[in-house]
């Protein structure tokens, strides 16, 4: 019997940048990344995004916690580069910077 290799579905995951300052730096406010449905580490997701938005690279590497952007995947934020996220049909990614709170 032949084993048929399943080809993972390609999906478009919307990436939205929420903060005005980051949009200015990035040069874009919204885009979609095309990936195969499946599991990815935070590190892989960040790399994919930075390939599309290279202007965000310096900030993403900043040691200054006031400058380093946050990234939320499917409504979840992790700071662990090895944290695994599932990217599927209804996934979304949000990028923002720190707020003033109160």
């Amino acid at each position: 019997m032949e084993t048929v290799e399943e080809v993972a579905k390609k999906i478009k995951v919307p990436v939205k940048i929420l903060s005005d300052y980051l949009i200015k730096v990035a040069g874009v406010g919204e885009l979609a990344i095309e990936v195969s449905e499946g599991e990815y580490t935070l590190s892989e997701i960040i790399d994919t995004i930075l390939r599309r938005i290279p202007k965000l690279k310096p900030l993403s590497e900043s040691k200054d916690l006031g400058k380093q952007p946050f990234i939320a995947v499917n409504g979840e934020v992790s700071y662990d580069k090895n944290h695994v996220f599932k990217l599927g049909k209804s996934s979304r990614i949000t990028i923002f910077s720190v707020g003033a709170g109160g």
Binding site: Y21, Y79, G99, G101
Partner: peptide
């Protein structure tokens, strides 16, 4: 600018981190 758009609860993640 950030507080206008995201409200005072825009402080949450800065504190979390």
């Amino acid at each position: 600018v950030g507080t206008a758009k995201f409200g005072t609860a825009s402080g949450t993640m800065g504190l979390d981190r």
